[in-house]
Design a protein around this nucleic acid. Structure first.
Length: 414
RNA sequence: GCGGGUGUAGCUCAGUUGGUUAGAGCGCCAGAUUGUGAUUCUGGAUGUCGUCGGUUCGAAUCCGAUCACUCGCCCCA
């Protein structure tokens, strides 16, 4: 309603923030490429059922956080709240399952109607990687190692702890879920209101509740361990061994669960304490049943997503952009000449800024403000001699150079 | 969706128990320097005191609502 401010939970990304944003995404893309992940993108909006079914009708994301609307043709459309479902849909749509495994890197904006908070927005950006068509634990190890490498390359791995858990296979989870429902139902008097609701929808979620009463009840809750099938236990053990072999340290967290229904087996999160309540910086897991659930072949998958804004808050200042050369024109003749000279310099690869207004003093001030490395001054005097004044803005040294030699003489300032 | 805190210039903030012309620093603009930037000096501009309503002779100050931000809950990257 108030006109001149961005919609709640959205934000303008101004140049300084954008450099951080870019640093995060570019670094992640490079690391993913080392692992053989290729960049791709899916639409920002999809038919609602692409997200509703796989994520889970009962999850908060689907039940109350999706930006869903009917378009002008009456189609039910949703702005993507996460990337995995869209990518899996794309794999099915394009028949990409002929040549497995496939490895994708993607990034872009996501949308969830949530209450904004530090590190939590209604429009936010994620980096996402998916490994589709590899069902062995080695794939899990690769995926987690890729996450750790990405954080390491960003210089934030030291501030993060990798938490690891298994959600087992379908049989394990069904048995465990039943056991949890029994246990929590018997202790429902000790549970918080939120958890009573979870008991209906997603009992596993009670395990990571922060409520003091819930924590007490959780202490004696049955552990997943005794409900894991032999196969699921072996799978997880292999993942853990693989991580250790690669020197990726982790902490087992039996309370770590996933909010989206399609996850199974390995679940992991890199968590930091430096961001307050929104501490998860990168999280993911295995989703073997997802593609089949969405109407495709029964192909396993695993992936993770990382929050760009959260990482951007953690990284050190990104490298500053290249310093420009300030083209300073004086008088009509100089203005005209400066245009063509600047054009030539840019085509030769120089970064050149022009201000187009103000006297010499004014333009020098601007040159200084934008951290220009050098100023090229074109006034009537210089033009008469077919030359330009070149001033080194760091040393204050100024020389006059013939226009024909300008590119060469500016070389030290690129 | 629920609870706590905050909201004064572009930015960071001050504004005493309600008292009439609302301040500082930084930044911005201009001049000293009519063809030379960073320092310095001098001068200048800028606010619907988040918004709406109420109490009062009088509100930036008190009350209510609302919006936004923020910290938790929830959710999650």
């Amino acid at each position: 309603m108030p006109a001149l401010q961005p919609a709640r939970g959205t934000q303008d990304i101004l140049p300084e923030a954008m450099r951080r944003h870019r640093a995060v995404i570019d670094t992640a893309r490079i690391v993913a490429a080392r692992y053989g992940y290729e960049e791709m993108a899916t639409p920002i909006f999809e038919f609602t059922e692409v997200f509703a079914r796989p994520i889970g009708e009962a999850t908060d994301i689907v039940a109350k956080e999706m930006y869903t609307f009917a378009d002008r043709g009456g189609e039910e459309i949703t702005l993507r709240p996460e990337y995995t479902a869209g990518i899996v849909r794309a794999v099915i749509s394009n028949g990409l399952t002929q040549n497995l495994p496939i490895k994708f890197f993607a990034c872009g904006p996501m949308f969830r109607y949530e209450r904004p908070q530090k590190g939590r927005f209604r429009q936010f950006h994620q980096i996402d990687v998916e490994l589709i068509g590899a069902g062995t634990p080695e794939a899990d190890v690769e995926m987690i190692a890729l996450g750790a490498d990405t954080l390491a390359e960003l210089g934030v791995l030291g501030h993060c702890e990798l938490q690891l858990n298994t959600l087992g296979d379908a049989d394990s989870r069904q048995a465990y879920r039943a056991a949890l429902v029994d246990y929590f139902s018997a202790h429902r008097h000790g549970l918080s209101e939120d958890s009573l609701r979870r008991l209906e929808r997603n009992p596993l979620r009670i395990l990571d509740s922060k409520d003091a009463g819930d924590v007490a009840v959780n202490a004696a809750a049955p552990s997943f361990d005794s409900y894991l099938t032999e196969a699921a236990r072996d799978f997880f053990a292999t993942v853990c061994r693989g991580l250790t072999a690669l020197g990726v340290t982790y902490r087992l967290n039996p309370r770590l669960v996933r909010g989206l229904d399609y996850y199974c087996h390995t679940a992991f999160e890199f968590v930091t304490e430096q961001l307050g309540a929104q501490g998860t910086v990168l999280g993911g897991g295995r989703y073997d049943g997802l593609m089949k659930l969405m109407g495709g072949p029964d192909v396993p998958g695993i992936g993770w997503a990382a929050g760009v804004e959260r990482l951007a808050l953690l990284i050190a200042a990104p490298p500053v952009p290249p310093r420009p050369i300030a083209m300073i024109a004086l008088g009509d003749a100089g203005e005209g000449k400066a245009m063509t000279v600047a054009h030539e310099l840019r085509r030769a690869g120089f970064t050149v800024d022009q201000a187009y207004s103000g006297n010499l003093s004014r333009r020098m001030k601007r040159a200084n403000k934008i951290a220009a490395r050098a100023a090229v001054i074109l006034g009537d005097d210089e033009l008469a001699r077919g030359s330009a004044a070149v001033r080194d803005l760091d040393t204050g040294e100024q020389i006059e150079v013939p226009l024909a030699q300008l590119k060469d003489r500016l070389a030290p300032f690129r």
